[in-house]
Design a protein around this nucleic acid. Structure first.
Lengths: 211, 211
DNA sequence: AATGTATGTTACCGGTCAGTCACAAATGAA
DNA sequence: TTCATTTGTGACTGACCGGTAACATACATT
């Protein structure tokens, strides 16, 4: 429906032409993550994006739709991080697991550099949404549940590939560590909380499942 | 200020006399936990408690004050659970740790019995509050941070007492498991999620820190 | 019966929320 | 120029929010 014949200019991908919708969306992602979904109104999003509410509703049918898109974008970004972390060790699932937990602190506790203060971590965007959204919201609840299920499957698969005894239990245990890291990250600044121990803990669990 | 000379009747503790405030508070705890803090208005609390908004504001100076009291009550209840779990094994810190994780599933995934559907677990009330409250709210943020710090200290202390190598790391790792259990409990019904593996994981970590 | 306290009732305030309308301005292609 | 599309603007609705005021009722103690 939207977009239509926008490719009339000779340029390959007409870089940054319909900027408004993108600016709104990027701003919304930032604000939702930083302040929570319920705490951020569409007016605030539009203003922060340098536009107004009417342009917002010309780009998104409702706030709920925007939230759904926000969650899907967070999921996409997280899997992108995941794939980048394990890519250098293709074919070596044990090294991939170690790489994941080595990279984890960089994800959950980003250093000042390149962070621009805006990504000061506030846990998992998807799980946080599960706290805020109404339990009868199938749409959003389903997105979160599917996402967490994928994470669980990936960890269990890696646990299986390294030949762990009881790979389901190992995968689940590693997932608990990651989720716990996020959850505690909400109340302990930087890596001052128990999240600092996650790497040791993961190695300990992996090792004891291989012995 | 309130209450005053309420003990004029001969009865020892004048059971259930000033009911209104208590009804409001109990109702608020239920609703806050089940639906989230921002999602529950004072009108809804008052109605559900069988009273009205005016009686609410005669008992509580503001919603924020009620929320603070709610958080402190949740903290109190959690430590009560904790103390009851370890009490039978006084002097045996290893047994206490095992008892904690044995009891954990009963806390985070209460069985149908005696649950009355109202306690269907939605994670840690304190951590959930950290998702919802504004980051500039020192009052509420402080309550959550202090609570989580106490939990961390207790686990590290137990880890020290069992003679773990690197007791800080073990305590933190066990805390990550617990927090991860709560966080995932938000999206996986009952014990269908990775939380089911928490007991094995805890034993595994403890054992590898003792070997 | 008289009095004081706890509670209920109704209406209201100012503010914010999501969402819509009508209209003006900018833009860009023909 | 002309015309269509996109964007900006301000006002608006209806609902809900936290919080307050004024007044009426119930009840227990004396």
């Amino acid at each position: 429906m939207a977009v239509k014949v926008l490719a009339e200019t000779g340029k390959v991908e007409d870089a940054g032409k319909p900027r408004v919708r993108d600016r709104i969306f990027d701003t919304a992602c930032e604000l939702f993550y930083k302040h929570g979904i319920r705490a951020v109104g569409v007016d605030a999003i539009a203003n922060e994006a340098g536009t107004n509410k009417m342009s917002f509703y010309r780009s998104f049918p409702s706030k709920d739709e925007l939230v759904a898109e926000y969650l899907r974008e967070q999921e996409r970004g997280y899997f992108e991080w995941w794939d980048a972390a394990i890519a250098p060790h293709a074919g070596d699932p044990l090294a991939q697991l170690h790489a994941l937990f080595n990279a984890y602190l960089g994800l959950a506790c980003p250093k000042a550099e390149a962070d621009m203060d805006c990504r000061t971590s506030r846990g998992c965007a998807l799980a946080n949404a599960a706290v805020e959204i109404a339990e009868d919201n199938r749409e959003l609840g389903g997105i979160v549940h599917e996402y967490k299920t994928k994470i669980r499957r990936r960890l269990r698969k890696l646990a299986r590939e390294i030949g762990a005894r009881d790979p389901e239990a190992l995968g689940d245990a590693l997932m608990l560590l990651m989720e716990g890291g996020y959850y505690t990250r909400l109340t302990f600044p930087n890596n001052s909380g128990p999240i600092a121990a996650i790497n040791k803990a993961a190695r300990s669990l992996i090792e004891s499942h291989l012995r």
